[in-house]
Design a protein around this nucleic acid. Structure first.
Lengths: 210, 210, 210, 210
DNA sequence: ACCTGCGGGACCTCCCGTTGAT
DNA sequence: ATCAACGGGAGGTCCCGCAGGT
């Protein structure tokens, strides 16, 4: 019993240390010896818990993923209207990205590891569902097709991750979640003073350099 | 003369091969021997041109950066209105990201290498200037402050990079630049059917989980 | 327990093999792969015990130094008169130099490695002390100042090292310690038949080519 | 003609630079690129003059050797008595060792390069001859056999080299040639106050640790 | 004839991820 | 859960050709 408790604590501290390293240095840039040193566990001990580097990375991914989906689950349980839920979902995600090493590590690992499923697969279906319901309730402009808004959401979350990652060393620690909130206000109502101009603002695909 | 020509060709093929590897595997995940093999140049030859991995990475960054700024320079020379220029700028950037290994590699390296200036420093000032002029001409809604729109643009370009990167292995080769175009159409005119609802869609910062 | 024993044996055989190589080829001329091969330990195993070449060299130096000072300690514990102790000290040192790879390697490494303290610092103070006592007891000629005799001892030990080193490959395996003994007999009593001639035998410093 | 002059100058500056490096870092520790940089000649140029590192080392050895034998030749032409010539010979050698990079490099290379003839082969015959003549003239004590004195001379020159080499970085730049002079004064007349004690000062060979 | 730019591999030191013996 | 050892590359350097210009 006591042994198992100690083992669980070791495992947790290994995952936590690994998350920090994977987040900062990526998969290839992280060495197991660094992780074991940060966690205060011998390299042999690390091997006992995770028999390979890939396995450790998967544990970190799992940790981050579950933290993120826990947030999602809490949010979609709220009684808010669907569109607000979508916005809240991305903003909360951004907050997790800012504050949780494992979440950032998970996103980075999902990108860098070959064959891993993209992280957006976890929440995109939810987002699409919310948007469908928003459309059904007439909250969306007719031109705003759910699929396009979902793509927008993906782009914004990507941007939030970059903002959070860069902000760590910058002098202006602007919070990614707040930036994202301001962007949503903008996006929801639109940028143009005159909506009629929109058509000629976007270059036609394949048109080359105007 | 002949020598210099051959040297220049070798150098170029090294940079090209390195760009592909850095793009795919990142800085730490790329080995010089792989690069030299891909380029068909011996490791000694690589060392002659680039005395360290960091130097090679800098050359790749420079290559990608100059390709990108060349595109920017061409765009801002057009007589289009500023807002359209901004949209075109991001869309053309996305196209470069799709098509040019070196540009993708440059963006990735700029993130992964410590101490490197963020790539957005190159085009953000231009974007801010365009937005200021758009505001002066009354093209922006009063609520759309230039700084916020610039932040939006950064997020969208980040998202375009991720889209382009993921698309490489996916089954749906959706072009990042086209996706970006559709997103801009959405964003310019807004998402909400009723603009009055915007205020209550975005959670107040610091409010926690609503 | 058994593990630690095996580890100690591995370590020792590494140090022994390294001593032979450092002695023969010097610091820069010795490669770790050669050492690991000679010791019958894989290169990775070597790295486990000594994380760098410098660290291995230090272990070899320490090994040789301790062997030498052990000899010194045994000698100065004898009841012999001081001058005889000094002679015995250099002769025993010469014997160590002949027979012990680590001692030779230590002396060579102490010369070749930048920043390392010269080996003579270890025994010169002892020699000076012996000479001072010899002078106090009236065993030295008045012209033989302790400092000068100490310098002579240093020269002779240097010469013994060279003799031992060259002898390894020569056809005349003359033992350095025996040669040194004969030299001391000579030096103690002097070379000249007529001591009065000494003054005009040595060129005055700064006189150039007489 | 002009070409050849320039070539000779290049060659000389290469040898000079190489001497400094070989002296400081030894054969294995010296890289051709460093030498070429110090000499201000391209690496290809170096290869033109010396087609291999060994060849360059031989040129340096030759340079140092000829400088040393020139000194010897000048000395043995003097009308001094033989013993004084021997002393002068070693002292002048020490002076060369102090002042001439190539001489120091030559001595080091002669030790480090496998198969090279020992440098003492160059002057030992001369020394032996001088000692024989000194004995014939009755200048030596009967116990001072020429062969033993020659061995002493070799030891002293070895010691002078070490003194010169170590002195470079020390705080007391004591000149090797002056130290050697004082040692000779000592050695010529002897160290002991009472010559009768000599027999019991030197341990019998093979006696082990007294 | 003299020198250089360019390129080729072999190797070196160091580190990494992993595995048995205990 | 550890200690000890392994083998495979990593990045980097080295010594050396060889085609070509001056």
């Amino acid at each position: 019993m006591v042994k198992q408790e100690r083992a669980a604590r070791s495992r947790r501290s290994l995952v936590r240390a690994a998350a920090a390293h994977f987040d900062r240095d990526g998969y290839a840039g992280t060495s197991l010896s660094q992780v074991s040193k940060s966690a205060g566990i011998s390299l042999g001990g690390l091997t006992f818990h995770f028999s390979s580097k890939a396995e450790l990375a998967e544990a970190v991914e799992e940790e981050g993923r579950s933290a993120a989906v826990a947030t999602l689950d809490r949010l979609i349980a709220s009684p808010d209207p669907p569109l607000r839920q979508l916005v809240g979902l991305t903003v909360e995600l951004a907050r997790q990205i800012e504050e949780n090493d494992a979440v950032r590590a998970m996103m980075r690992l999902a990108r860098e590891r070959p064959g891993a499923p993209p992280w957006s697969a976890e929440w995109l279906p939810v987002a699409r569902d919310l948007l469908q319901r928003a459309q059904d309730k007439g909250q969306l402009r007719s031109a705003a097709r759910p699929e396009a808004v979902a793509a927008l959401a993906v782009h914004l979350v990507s941007g939030a991750e970059m903002t959070a990652r860069r902000g760590a060393g910058g002098e202006a620690p602007e919070r990614a979640s707040e930036v994202l909130g301001r962007i949503w206000e903008l996006v929801l109502t639109g940028i143009l003073a005159d909506r009629e101009d929109a058509a000629e603002m976007v270059p036609r695909p394949g048109a080359g350099l105007s």
